[in-house]
Design a protein around this nucleic acid. Structure first.
Lengths: 136, 136
DNA sequence: CTTGACCCTGTAGTTGCTACAGGGTGCATA
DNA sequence: TATGCACCCTGTAGCAACTACAGGGTCAAG
């Protein structure tokens, strides 16, 4: 299949596919006589793996490690679990941070009663961190 | 005050302060005979405003608009409220997305029982989006 | 034989910084 | 007076993970 078909099949955009090849995340495929990239099912499933992992927020380097593992089926699964668990921890930390931030923002937004900027509680609050209830 | 003092006073790092000046977020300060930047209290509070807004996740462009508003105290406060409310909405959307993602990750991580990569549920789950319970 | 959809390479832009390299300044100490 | 050290300057390049061209080639249909 050509790159456009692979793109439609996986949801990854064409430039992204070429980018993944350039950084060595996807192997360079065979080429047709016209120098078009020609992909098989193995490319397709590898790319799906990459896109799905990216959607789950794994970094390219984490995905590289996960792919290394899946390329070598004899290796220990603990490493994959360790990467995923660490990532889960990061997502949880990010959520906790955003929740604090949301609460702070909600407090700030809730204070606006209209009027002119000179009296604006929003602008005032942004200039004065000491009024915040949490550290962000 | 010199740039190092401003940096200590606001928590912004020196390179960041110069960056804000370069992109026009902070006005260029006066210079000493030795060509050192020389800041006053107005710079300090403007920079605090910027840093605090960044910590709350506002983009540089949003901050630019907020600063424009606070530079012109006669203007309507509604604009500031609109920006902050929109941002709050984005933060809430991001939280919702991360919560889905966390749940999906937790499901994936919870399935690992050790063993070799060939049997790894983590790797298997990453390769197969159709097993996910949510769209991410 | 031309139109349009597709493909190629290579480079530059995005956001919000951060990190040099290579130089100048200012003050204290030997 | 020399010299060390902390600080400052400009300009450029790097980070993540793409995305967006520019400028060209290929191929099938009408």
């Amino acid at each position: 299949m050509k790159i456009g078909e692979l793109s439609r099949a996986t949801g990854a955009n064409i430039e992204t596919i070429r980018y993944y090849e350039r950084i060595g995340l996807l192997p360079a495929p065979a080429r047709t006589a016209a120098n078009y990239r020609s992909y098989g099912p193995a490319h397709r499933s590898r790319l799906s793996f990459v896109r799905h992992s990216r959607e789950l927020g794994f970094t390219i380097e984490e995905i590289r490690s996960l792919l290394d593992l899946s390329d070598d089926p004899a290796r220990d699964c603990g490493e994959a679990d360790r990467i995923a668990t660490a990532h889960l921890g990061q997502v949880e930390a990010k959520i906790a941070q955003l929740v604090l931030l949301r609460d702070e923002l909600a407090r700030i937004v809730g204070r606006c009663r209209g009027g002119i900027a000179a009296d604006c509680r929003v602008i005032e609050a942004l200039g004065d961190h000491s009024r915040c209830e949490s550290q962000h």
